[in-house]
Amino acid sequence: MITHFQHKPLYDNQNMAGWRFSFYFNKEKHTGIYQANGIIEWTSSIKIADKEALIKQVHELMAFHVYDQ
């Protein structure tokens, strides 16, 4: 389960979509960039076994926090 999810704009010009995000999963901090087209660029290492579940959860959290406001 993802905890302490945070996001902030990637660009100073907030009219441009893109966000940096971070969260904890299994007591490890993970970071990445969420592009406007939904592509996630991981800036920390993640275990292959966790990757699909984390991608789904990040998409859901971004949809809730950014797009559904």
Results as ranks from 00 to 15, higher is better:
Met1Glu: 15
His4Pro: 01
Phe5Thr: 06
His7Ile: 08
His7Cys: 09
Lys8Phe: 01
Lys8Glu: 05
Leu10Gln: 12
Tyr11Ile: 10
Asp12Glu: 13
Asp12Cys: 12
Asn13Lys: 09
Asn13Tyr: 11
Gln14Leu: 03
Asn15Glu: 05
Asn15Leu: 12
Asn15Pro: 00
Met16Phe: 11
Ala17Asp: 10
Trp19Gln: 02
Arg20Lys: 15
Ser22Thr: 06
Phe23Ala: 13
Tyr24His: 10
Tyr24Val: 04
Phe25Trp: 11
Asn26Val: 07
Lys27Val: 04
Lys29Met: 12
Lys29Asp: 02
Thr31Ser: 14
Thr31Trp: 06
Thr31Gln: 14
Thr31His: 06
Gly32Phe: 02
Gly32Ser: 07
Ile33Thr: 13
Tyr34Cys: 10
Ala36Lys: 10
Ala36Tyr: 04
Asn37Asp: 13
Gly38Val: 06
Ile39Asp: 05
Ile39Ser: 08
Ile40Val: 14
Ile40Asp: 01
Glu41Arg: 05
Trp42Cys: 02
Trp42Pro: 00
Lys47Trp: 00
Lys47Arg: 04
Lys47Asn: 05
Ile48Asp: 00
Ala49Ser: 12
Ala49Phe: 14
Ala49Leu: 13
Asp50Ile: 06
Asp50Gln: 09
Lys51Ile: 03
Lys51Leu: 07
Lys51Ala: 08
Glu52Phe: 12
Glu52Gln: 08
Leu54Met: 10
Leu54Trp: 11
Ile55Cys: 09
Lys56Cys: 07
Lys56Ser: 07
Gln57Ala: 15
His59Tyr: 03
His65Glu: 15
Val66Glu: 00
Val66Arg: 00
Tyr67Asp: 13
Asp68His: 07
Asp68Pro: 00
Gln69Asn: 14
